[in-house]
């Protein structure tokens, strides 16, 4: 075993990082195809309001963040549905509102900077053993839920109206997906930090969609991209002594870049035929 792997914090970073990455990569695919890619950023802002509310009311801040994020996620899809808002308008509305409420609460309570930050932002190098368990449970829950509802989710994602007509309970599935997303974002923020969780939701899934011929393959590709990026990013951050989260995001982006070049190459080859 290489010497650096004997450090507990690096083992935990690898483990928790990989499991969070899997959960994010799978969810990210559905979110991107629904044109909800920015929901990661949106819910992160909203979770800020949740933590502030928790601190303000003196209840468990992370629990408050979870409740608020789940409620907001559901509200976002309802608003999108009912008000007929285009694309990510609802996300824009709610994330701004979240930020505003968070700032207001923080300034009304005058002074809980440190707590606010520490509840919101984890660091992949400072993961507690309990948080590794949390990451594993999260990945398991996401994979299991997607597997159990795979056909329906797919149907709904690609053709919402037909799915509804065919008797798929679209509304209920929407809520399920949003609850999973909200939980993943809030826990992911706490465990690996906001930068990483927002990136892992979008980039690996986008990379997977560049090259995949089928949805199943896209799932596999994006999971692979996410996991390899976490591993390679941590490795690179060790080798060059650079911040780990940033290195992982850079690797995700490299994978995306390579895959989209591949696609372009393949596309022009196809055209030549």
């Amino acid at each position: 075993m290489p010497a650096f792997l004997t450090y507990g914090f690096i083992q935990r970073a690898f483990l928790a990082g990989v499991f969070i990455a899997v959960a994010c990569a799978v969810l990210g695919l559905f979110l991107i195809l629904r044109k909800d890619a920015m929901i990661g950023h949106g819910l992160a802002h909203i979770a800020f309001a949740g933590v502030a509310l928790g601190l303000f009311l003196n209840v468990l801040p992370l629990a408050a963040a979870l409740v608020v994020a789940v409620a907001a996620a559901v509200a976002i899809i309802k608003l999108k549905d009912r008000a007929g808002l285009y694309g990510d308008t609802a996300i824009g509305i709610f994330s701004s509102l979240g930020l505003a409420v968070g700032i207001l609460l923080a300034s009304m309570a005058r002074g809980f900077n440190v707590e606010l930050m520490s509840y919101l932002f984890g660091d992949i190098l400072a993961i507690e053993p309990l948080e590794v368990g949390l990451a594993v449970a999260l990945a398991a829950a996401v994979l299991l839920t997607v597997r159990m509802n795979y056909a329906k989710l797919l149907y709904m994602t690609f053709d919402r109206e037909s799915a509804r007509a065919a008797g798929v309970k679209v509304g209920r599935l929407d809520v399920l997906l949003m609850v999973l997303t909200a939980v993943t974002i809030v826990l992911g923020m706490k465990v690996v930090g906001i930068l990483l969780v927002a990136a892992l939701i979008v980039i690996p899934a986008a990379a997977g969609l560049q090259v995949a011929a089928s949805f199943r393959m896209a799932v596999r590709t994006s999971i692979t991209v996410a996991v390899v990026s976490v591993g390679a990013g941590l490795g690179l951050s060790l080798a060059l002594n650079i911040p780990a989260s940033a290195a992982i995001v850079i690797f995700c982006f490299l994978a995306f870049g390579i895959f989209s070049l591949l696609k372009k190459g393949r596309g022009s080859a196809d055209r030549r035929k």
């Binding site: 650096f4 450090y7 914090f9 400072a126 941590l234 951050s237 911040p243 780990a244």
Partner: peptide
Amino acid sequence: AQPRPLDLMNAV
């Protein structure tokens, strides 16, 4: 600042 892994390892 953001902590870096080698700094942590060195500290350990």
